[in-house]
Amino acid sequence: MDPSSSGIQEPFDLIRLSLSERVFVKLRGDRELSGILHAYDGHMNLILSDVEETIMIVDEEGQGAVNIAKRKMNMLFVRGDGVILVSPPSRT
């Protein structure tokens, strides 16, 4: 068996153990979310509450200066096809 693994047999276990916890989600289109995970499925469709979205807008002319837009949403469905990665809170 794998000694370094902490009882995770498949990648989705990581997500299951994060239910009702705050997770970080990286999305296509330079977007990031932080929210409390309440539901997911095999497509990585997600339902999050208490969400803060961060959008990175790179200014092409301004020598790559990055503008950041933030907004909050109460309860959000996220379509799975936009998800790049999900990171749970660090378990210790």
């Binding site: 239910l19 009702s20 289109g29 409390i36 309440h38 539901a39 339902i47 509450s49 949403m73 109460n74 309860m75 959000l76 469905f77 996220v78 379509r79 936009g82």
Partner: peptide, 17 residues
Amino acid sequence: VRYVQLPAEHVDTQLLE
């Protein structure tokens, strides 16, 4: 669709989990 903002008062989060 990218997102759908849902009415939180009609979502039972415990039930969902």
